[in-house]
Design a protein around this nucleic acid. Structure first.
Lengths: 194, 194
DNA sequence: ATAGTTTCTAAGCTATCGCTTAGTTTTGTT
DNA sequence: AACAAAACTAAGCGATAGCTTAGAAACTAT
């Protein structure tokens, strides 16, 4: 991913997009720190040399994994952005958030939220800042949706957006352990006063 | 903490309760994995040998730290248990939850919740199970409080208790980064539909 | 003062961490 | 067939992880 070959030589025996997807699932399952380069080696099916020549560092593999994850879940974000029903879109987004990870075959919640939880404790971390920005983006969409109801004043919108963002965060954490029914109950309760 | 001395010899130059409190703050600040025994050594002000002879292992230090933490926050749990105003007690408990850590001089949320988040990814973990039990205990108290309102049916109580437990979880996570005002808004929003 | 017991300091143990390097194999060009 | 460039394998790098050990220091009982 770092250089473009212009001279013909031995060919790569793996496809970077494919091995990154495997890495993504491993990071998703174990978290960043608990995933060693040796584990990545096994899971991705390639040698450490190949990992480092393709992605530069463990951090690099993780960032590509995050990109991969974001791409996988981009559909539900596009749906959220393009729909125009207001609050109902956000609620649908919550339901999508517990459905899609299940379809991807991973019961470990949301990789972005998990990563945020893992890195939030460390100061000055690049990944943490990136994710905070990402979440601010989600909050901005929530505000936009809430603003479609003209009866709401600015202060209410701000409070509700904040509330929903934290609720989404809680939902992602909960989806690692709670049953689907409990998660659905939680979503219904969350939107009862919006 | 493991053995009782019955023969007189050289005296310990530290008090276990005191050094554990320092360890607790370090774990609280950095999380379990990111806290090394060398860091504990510095923070606790005692040698590694002393750490291991007093607490057996890093895990042992952490478990004692958790006990220490629980004792520090026991006041707000006792308040929650002994009050009899129903839902209002739970709300007060939420407010206490963001106030007490602040008073303890640590802005890193709730140690129990942080630990839960850190260990939830690993399977078969003793600490994780212990905390799940702890949270079930909290949920039981919520149910008790909610049941004081006789107009609520059992299904509603169950849903609301579940909702509040997840909301509490989200609040603890949020208190590491959000402002006090945002947290207060979140609490108010959470209890608007109970 | 000596013996016996415990705690102290400081060095070192093995295992694993992220990462690199040496040397072989595969490829396309000439 | 010879060569250059890139990717492969596998060994090994220094640093750090949790934990242990050897021996000096401090204490009480006799």
């Amino acid at each position: 991913m770092y250089r473009i070959t212009n001279v013909m030589a031995r060919k790569k025996e793996y496809i970077e997009e494919e091995v990154i997807e495997k890495a993504m699932h491993l990071f998703w399952h174990n978290g960043y720190e608990a995933t060693s380069v040796r584990m990545l080696e096994k899971e991705m099916g390639i040698n450490q040399f190949s990992i480092y020549s393709s992605f530069g560092s463990k951090h690099g593999v993780f960032q590509e994994s995050l990109k991969c994850y974001k791409q996988k879940v981009s559909a539900i974000f596009n749906k959220l952005k393009t729909s125009t029903r207001g609050v109902e879109d956000i609620k649908e987004f919550f339901y999508d958030s517990i459905r899609v990870p299940e379809e991807l075959g991973n019961q470990k919640g949301c990789l972005v939220t998990n990563t945020y939880n893992e890195f939030a404790e460390k100061e000055d971390d690049v990944i943490s800042k990136e994710i905070v920005d990402f979440m601010e983006g989600v909050k901005a969409i929530f505000i936009e949706k809430l603003s479609m109801d003209s009866s709401k004043d600015e202060a209410t919108i701000r409070k509700q957006a904040n509330y929903l963002l934290l609720a989404k965060h809680g939902l992602a954490a909960a989806s690692r352990v709670n049953s689907k029914e409990e998660l659905e109950d939680y979503i219904e309760m969350t939107f009862r006063n919006i």
